[in-house]
């Protein structure tokens, strides 16, 4: 099992967290076309390498945070 460094609680087992998906830039809902909005909803970079993603610490501080993880090795690079 891998551990994730929660910025508030420190390193914890990944089972304490809920994966909240890859970070995708959100277009302005007021001006975005349906096509742009659906691209935001559905299209993902899904790289085999470092990805910026959101996590939620369900069994801890119950806060969202962002981290950079290498999807090939699951090694965590950076948290914010």
């Amino acid at each position: 099992m891998i551990q994730l460094p929660c910025p508030w609680c420190g390193p914890r087992n990944v089972t304490e967290f809920r994966y909240a998906g890859e970070r995708t830039p959100r277009p302005d809902p007021g001006t975005a076309t349906p096509r742009q909005w659906r691209a935001y909803l559905y299209l993902r970079r899904n790289p085999c390498g470092v990805v910026e993603e959101n996590w939620y610490h369900t069994a801890g501080c119950r806060r969202f945070f962002t981290l950079h993880r290498d999807t090939a090795s699951n090694a965590v690079k950076e948290t914010r």
Binding site: G21, E22, Y42, L43, R44, N46, P47, C48, T71
Partner: peptide, 18 residues
């Protein structure tokens, strides 16, 4: 597993998560 990476080579974005 690798479908996003192959589609990326052709410049086609995918709604796929592995």
């Amino acid at each position: 597993g690798w479908s996003t990476l192959i589609s990326d080579m052709a410049g086609v974005s995918m709604p796929v998560s592995t």
